[in-house]
Design a protein around this nucleic acid. Structure first.
Lengths: 204, 204
DNA sequence: TCTAGCATGTAAATCGTTACATGATTAA
DNA sequence: TTAATCATGTAACGATTTACATGCTAGA
């Protein structure tokens, strides 16, 4: 329900072709709403036939040829409507947390290396965001649009900060856990033991 | 690719029927991997025909009748395999951040109220997590399984803490932004203005 | 018996991912 | 002219969501 609106936002910021949009979704907008080029082309087709955007008249509609789009008033109205409407926050879905929960039952073999790898990835992302912040949002007065964009960037920075800290804690925990490569490999098959604090307990 | 493994984890913690799983996914496991009952029933069918789980022999296989499942050795092996395998972190997708970014272009009308509502929801969730923490993870030594589960719960607590803080910042920002109900309503339709710092800028 | 709630499902539509296909442009 | 790259798509499949259908059980 959000991809068309992500595309409308990107096109309002600058009219673009499908591939240009794809590239911009790898940066910028894509930092909080990712999309592949197939999704983007499909959605551009829908938005065009729905009357929300149109191809710039300068470009020919041939197959291998560049085709840029701009937002029509109906598209802007739809985006404004969608932005104003109340929406439920989507529940969290995180594979790493699920894996950790599973590893409490079937053993922690292999997961520590991936925790380290994820830590490095999140540190990289954090550094990239901080670079953008220094370059595009110097301290001092700024226009309301820029304050809003900075707010969004700060969410990214704070989220990556959270992950790097939490993954750090997790790795510390593993150091105190004994040899992780061997744990729980012995207790095999058979019905689950009813560990105390099992279902009332730990979640994220 | 993760729902079957979430179900295997839940069933290892305690054999359950479809509806019981659904309820447990509303708490516990569902805090970081949500699922509806339709997803769960379909996946239970697949896992059963794949030989990963089996219905407990005590229950009859009639339609409106309760049917509990337990994990077979193949299911435990598959879960251990999946847990150990390296996986890419999934890129962030957050509607509220997208809406804020859009509101920098089409105006902030309506969004402030929803920011407040989300703040209240995240505060509630945080309180719930902290209650679980106090009840199930008192300070002191604990078994490795419980330390892992606590780690996952701490991720939930820290994430909700992040959201409440960030939403607080966002609302402060709106107070300094002037009257949010009117902003940008005047600048209508027409091609987008090329604001400086547009595409190099804000993301998260 | 009727109703409400428990429990297990089916069906259809949309979204997301992966793999592949096709045409245009440019440089060796 | 060939190959590489840019650019726009198609096809197929699996995951997710929403709405609905069916059968059991217990209490009024």
């Amino acid at each position: 329900m959000s991809l068309p609106h992500a595309i409308l936002t990107a096109l309002l910021e600058r009219p673009s072709s499908g591939l240009e949009l794809t590239r911009r979704f790898d940066k910028s907008i894509g930092y909080f709403w990712s999309a592949t080029h197939q999704q983007i082309y499909r959605e551009l087709g829908r938005l065009e036939s729905g009357g929300y955007i149109r191809a710039l008249p300068t470009a020919q509609p041939a197959r291998g040829q560049k085709k840029s789009y701009e937002v029509l008033p109906a598209g802007r109205d739809e985006l404004a409507r969608w932005t104003a409407v109340s929406q439920e926050p989507k529940p969290l879905r995180d594979t790493m947390l699920l894996r950790l929960r599973a590893s409490a039952v079937v053993g922690t073999a292999g997961i520590e290396a991936d925790l380290r790898r994820h830590l490095a990835l999140h540190q990289e992302q954090l550094a990239e965001y901080e670079e953008i912040q220094e370059r595009d949002f110097p301290p001092g007065r700024s226009a309301p649009e820029d304050r809003l964009r900075h707010l969004v960037l700060r969410a990214g920075i704070d989220l990556e900060t959270f992950w790097t800290q939490w993954l750090g804690h997790a790795l510390e925990e593993f150091e105190h856990l004994g040899d992780p490569r061997a744990r729980r490999e012995e207790s095999d098959s058979g019905p689950a033991s009813d560990a105390p604090g099992e279902d009332r307990s730990a979640s994220g």
